[in-house]
Amino acid sequence: MNHISSQEKGFRVVTDEEMREVLRVEGLTKHFAIDKRLFGQPRKWVQAVDNVTFGVRGRGTLAIVGESGSGKTTVGRTIARLLKPSSGRILFDGNDIAQIDERSLRGVRKEIQMVFQNPNASLNPRMTVRQLLCEPLIVHQWPKEEHRPRIEELLETVGLPHSYVDRYPHEFSGGQRQRIAIARALAIRPKVIIFDEPVSALDVSVQAQIIQLLDRIQADTGLASIFISHDLSVVRAISDDVVVLYLGKVMEAGPSRELFGSPRHPYTQALISAVPKMHKRKSQDARIVLKGDLPSPANPPSGCRFRTRCWKAQDICATKAPELEGDAKRHFVACHFPN
């Protein structure tokens, strides 16, 4: 099957098993209505996600990076079909799941799972670990005799002692709760898991545990994942590919090494530069401090959305939105004046 869309100039056809995309998003767009009226069409729309295209490779981790208001969470929720996309395609297993109905979604939900930032809110406090892990098995009609061994296996995978199986979420620490949430997402062996800021609420020392856990699970199961985060150092550590979003649009995308090694979009450069470095002596690069705040997504700038904060902005940036263009290394950038 040909996964490569014709618009992507210079896209190299890769036949390698590892490079095959399990999930592909094309032109994904999601608006939300604001200022609803009692009757008729809403007066105003927020374009939370605007024409976003990327592919998730098998066994790979694609990270979606962005600040608040970038639409990264909306992308995740739309792919998991917790939200219905306004337009665009979500290709999974050769099918477009963007607009399919609730009934057909059940099959998709088995394959695409989601883990959220706050495990306190996503785990029912009145259910024990056993019940929490059993639930997806029951919903997806696993044979009853397989429940017990599967739960043991899952706890083993996420590194929790089996003796914890009858405890309630409040008896665990934040990191342990996130392990339970991960086990729950893994329960029915999905092909893709979407992690929405899974380590942001955790202490640094525990963050590292979860990052390594995710890396190990991926190596063992061949799971593909989408990792949504605002934290560039975490993303840099665990991702194979990165998509940088700003006000709902892709600014830059490409293999992680490539993108962090030689960022081409001014926004990406600024983001990377803004991460405080632990060792002053080693970081010689001049810091780029962006002026101003993110504009409101309800009222984005014309042309390139980043132009109001960009030090390279010219007249053309206000009139024409730059196209996302790629090179032979699958490194894409949407900028009139890229590096």
Binding site: V206, Q207, Q212, K282
Partner: peptide
């Protein structure tokens, strides 16, 4: 702590 200088293998929880 993951940093902009470290790799995944350098991170020791």
């Amino acid at each position: 702590a993951p940093t902009m200088e470290s790799e995944l293998k350098d991170i020791h929880p």
